[in-house]
Design a protein around this nucleic acid. Structure first.
Lengths: 193, 193
DNA sequence: CTTGCTTCTTGCCATAGGACAAGACATTCC
DNA sequence: GGAATGTCTTGTCCTATGGCAAGAAGCAAG
């Protein structure tokens, strides 16, 4: 039991053996091929996914038709649209596999049952949501206070795993710039060293 | 009971009369004068505040020393730093009264007790947090997809209450621009009509 | 009334980053 | 292999917004 992949996500020691069994059994391992969509705009998110391996991306299409990367998910992250999932309303986002991906999936009804039924599950879930909120807030401040080059530098430090595997165009929209500008920024950083 | 101001924040009908009594008694009415601080950078948020009247602002000082407005709170909002409050860690933000303010304050320990003890309280709290998260996400997308003038126009529609009472400089940093640019944008919008 | 202090506007110039188009590679598919 | 497609770079020019400084206009204090 203790070796279950979900042990990375929940403090299994805080559950009774039976409860832990019930929880791990409720998650279903699922695999996706590159470019598969886990969630599409307009649908109501009925699941979330703990990521075991691979890279996922959430994105939206803005009014001018541009593809905007909203977030990336890698091993240990939870791929989720919090608003759509928790409010059970249609999403404006898409979640897509950028590589082959292995996840553990939970549906909303079971999530609710665990959330209200198990205090440690609840605390863990709330902590995840607050963590996402905090990360988003930091990104917001960075968008206002930092120049594009600095934002890219931070990404190099904080998410080096993304740099090699995600197309520049998708990274660029995440940073709030065009792929052209990102290309130039990369060149400048190269020349500095 | 049903007339208590907190009826705006919680579905009182979902609590027993006794529970509702206990909850409303736990909130304490507090008043602040213009420019008072409710929370200062470095402290750990031990309360949150439901706003009955007045305007509050949260802000941070960026590495270059600039004052960045993060959010504004008016009647019906909850003034809170979610990360600091829920994770009980030091905040990077400040919360300040921009006018005279009347709020209802709750401390963390009592919040935790209610959160784990009352399912409707829990759902309401989670919904608030998700709402904040969603608003922040929309702001993020707007920062990337919209020009400054469009962001200001949206603010005019969505938060008209702020326009007259908040100094332009504080609105400008919220929009991610300088007060100079905001002044020009306002002029352009004036001339369009 | 006068002296400040803050807020808002305006002018001039500088610059980060965008738009568009073309080329250089790399990858996949037949 | 060759064609098609997608990714990344680069050049030229353009525009939104910033930086700085000087007025103007409101408000507060002596």
């Amino acid at each position: 039991m203790a070796e279950h992949f979900l042990g990375h996500f929940f403090p299994s020691t805080q559950f009774s053996s039976d409860d832990w069994q019930m929880i791990t059994n409720a998650f279903k391992q699922v695999r996706y091929a590159k470019d598969d969509h886990l969630l599409r705009e307009g649908a109501t998110a009925n699941h979330y996914w703990f990521v075991e391996s691979g890279i996922l991306r959430s994105y939206a299409i803005d009014p001018k038709g541009h593809d905007l990367s909203l977030d990336f998910f890698t091993r240990g992250d939870v791929a989720i649209d919090w608003s759509s999932f928790l409010q059970q309303k249609p999403t404006r986002e898409n979640i897509q596999a950028l590589t082959e991906v292995v996840c553990w999936r939970l549906d909303f009804a079971t999530f609710q049952q665990f959330f209200h039924g198990f205090e440690p599950f609840r605390e863990a879930g709330r902590a995840r949501l607050v963590g996402s909120y905090f990360a988003l807030k930091r990104k917001n401040v960075s968008m206002i206070a930092d120049q594009a080059k600095d934002r890219y530098r931070k990404l190099m430090v904080e998410r080096p795993d993304l740099l090699q595997q995600v197309p520049l165009k998708q990274l660029a929209s995440y940073l709030g710039i065009t792929d052209t500008s990102l290309s130039r920024i990369r060149k400048e950083i190269m020349e500095e060293s």
